[in-house]
């Protein structure tokens, strides 16, 4: 198996802060690896090391087959980087931004301009091509930023929280772009705090927290490993709710939890549990308006892994992941 990104035992310390404490990552060619974790987990640090912007204290990593420590220049020939904050040049127009990157990648003037035009068109920025980037909306800046990282047709693309701060419809657009990149053969490392985003895009997910990998695998497997499936039931008659609760406690694992206004949910094992549930409900005479079996959401997975709810992370200080400047 060929890995486009492969890292073993990466560590990095900033002063008293152990940003990475031995992280392993692997992404097969032509797939999306989702790097998921709360703010301050070390996601950005890991990306910066893989993109040769930062040297790890220990551990080793290869990107596109080249060692980031001994062969950084080769690595840079094969990567595209889109940072957490759009790193386009405000005082340059969209075209100037992209042509400049093309020229720095040794495209001839004509080629660089043609490539810029293609990318602007692809990202729906043709009309804004000759406007300074400072006049762009947040979504347009993100698109220009992503376009800038694609000028050299990189084999490996690092997207560090590409949709943070975008509204939901713009986020879906960005997802479409990322899917297309992968369809064209690129490998993508995507960091995100949005579980739905990792779920929607990633072939493999690595969850990190406080500089350590705490779980990894394909999204479905990750969900299954963590507590099997969830059974959700809503009684037709609220008076039967306590009776339903006792019944679910017998069928499932652990205490049934409240769900929504008057539903109950419990984790169950096995794909063939549903007929038994139906039979048990019938013999107990409990009528239900809703009955479903599904894998837990990544939110629930994340909660059970870290013991903290993602909602709580969202409100934590965004600066915690920023690396102190030397």
């Amino acid at each position: 198996m060929t890995f486009a990104i492969h890292a073993e035992g990466l560590t990095k310390r900033f002063g008293d802060n152990q940003a990475l404490a031995g992280v392993d990552l692997a992404a097969r060619e032509g797939t999306v690896l989702g790097l998921l974790g709360p703010n301050g987990a070390g996601k950005t640090t890991a990306v910066r090391i893989l993109a040769t912007l930062l040297a790890a204290d220990s551990g080793q990593a290869t990107v596109a087959g080249f060692d980031v420590r001994t062969d950084p220049r080769r690595v840079r020939e094969h990567i595209g980087l889109t940072g957490q904050y759009a790193s386009v040049d405000d005082d340059l127009t969209g075209t100037q931004n992209l042509v400049m990157i093309g020229q720095l990648l040794d495209l001839r003037g004509v080629e660089a301009r043609r490539r810029a035009r293609e990318l602007l068109e692809w990202f729906d920025l043709t009309e804004a091509a000759d406007r300074m980037a400072k006049t762009y909306s947040g979504g347009m800046r993100r698109r220009l930023d992503l376009a800038a990282s694609l000028v050299g047709r990189p084999a490996v693309i690092f997207l560090d929280e590409p949709t943070t701060g975008l509204d939901p419809s713009k986020r879906e657009d960005m997802w479409g772009v990322i899917r297309n990149l992968v369809a064209d053969g690129s490998t993508v490392l995507l960091t995100t705090q949005y579980l739905a985003e990792a779920d929607a895009l990633a072939d493999e997910i690595t969850v990190i927290d406080r500089g350590r990998v705490i779980a990894g695998g394909p999204p479905d497997q990750l969900k299954r490993v963590l507590g099997g499936q969830r059974l959700s039931v809503r009684p037709a008659d609220l008076g039967q709710r306590d009776e339903l609760r006792r019944l679910l406690a017998v069928i499932g694992h652990g205490e049934p939890a409240e769900e929504g206004r008057d539903g109950l949910t419990v984790s169950v094992e096995g794909d063939d549990v549903l007929p038994d549930v139906v039979a048990a409900l019938r013999s107990a005479g409990i009528r239900v308006t809703e009955l479903s079996l599904h894998l837990p959401s990544l939110d629930e997975v994340f909660f059970s892994l870290t013991g903290r709810s993602e909602a709580a992370h969202q409100s934590t200080d965004r600066t915690t992941e920023k690396e102190p400047v030397a």
Binding site: E77, D106, R115, G152, R153, G176
Partner: peptide
């Protein structure tokens, strides 16, 4: 939005 169309295939300027 044209974002969901794939990249034009005739682009074959190889990565420098």
């Amino acid at each position: 939005m044209t974002l969901t169309t794939t990249a034009p295939a005739e682009l074959s300027v190889s990565a420098p």
